[in-house]
């Protein structure tokens, strides 16, 4: 094993630790919203600091590896992929924090469960969590087929987000006194949809690393 191999294994290990932390942030944000659990929301704020620390550390490690070891071919692709995945994960952490912030600041005790149901919110966020887990597994096992399957989940998230626009608009018309709550839910759905976009970016980076193929901006035709 080369010295660079050792460094790349360490770097991957740090990324997976950060990844697990971000998955737990999103899971906790789901619990916080579904149960209106303000304690869970506080937990996310604490975890965000840890995620930010990981982000800085991984950025620095990538910079060091490029400067000191001059990686090429798959080593270079892995380093570049990790650099980008690192940014995506940090952004996902920010979205979870945004959901938590809403739960903490909201004066009410819950969001109308019927509205959550018709907007398919629980399915939406569960899918986002599954995408994050699948992306992590696909890098752990270097499985591009699993990475590509993430794109179909993202389509589902896009559809739910799109449908929620109309549902929430109608809800506001019927319940003008609940406009704030409805708009906040819309913003949260948008955040979860963006989590899906970042998971798709991560999947693209994994395919780039393993297959040296660029799927970015290739529309719906994303195969390996």
């Amino acid at each position: 094993m080369t010295h660079l191999d050792t460094e790349l294994i360490k770097l991957k290990h740090q990324l997976f630790e950060m990844w697990s932390l971000v998955i737990s942030q999103v899971e906790t944000s789901r619990e916080a919203l579904m149960n209106f659990d303000k304690g869970a929301a506080s937990e996310i704020a604490f975890k965000e600091k840890m995620v930010d620390t990981y982000e800085l550390k991984i950025d620095r490690e990538c910079e060091n590896i490029i400067a000191l070891y001059n990686p090429v071919a798959s080593d270079l692709r892995l380093t570049l992929a990790i650099l980008k995945i690192n940014t995506d994960l940090e952004r996902i952490g920010d979205f979870a924090r945004g959901i938590a912030r809403f739960v903490k600041k909201c004066p009410k005790e819950s969001i109308n469960p019927e509205l959550l149901k018709v907007c398919q919110f629980d399915d939406l966020i569960k899918n986002a969590i599954e995408m994050l887990n699948d992306a992590k597994s696909s890098l752990e096992h270097e499985n591009t087929r699993m990475a590509v399957s993430i794109f179909s989940h993202d389509d589902f998230l896009d559809d739910v987000h799109h449908n929620s626009n109309k549902i929430i608009a109608n809800y506001i018309k019927k319940h003008p006194d609940e406009i704030d709550e409805a708009l906040n839910l819309h913003s949260i759905i948008r955040k979860v949809e963006r989590i899906g976009d970042h998971c798709s970016n991560i999947a693209e980076e994994i395919v780039f690393y393993i297959e040296a193929k660029v799927l970015k901006h290739s529309g719906k035709i994303k195969t390996v």
Partner: peptide, 11 residues
């Protein structure tokens, strides 16, 4: 060659 060599041997 230095970003995506065709052969594992080269890599």
């Amino acid at each position: 060659i230095f970003t995506k060599p065709k052969l594992k041997h080269t890599e």
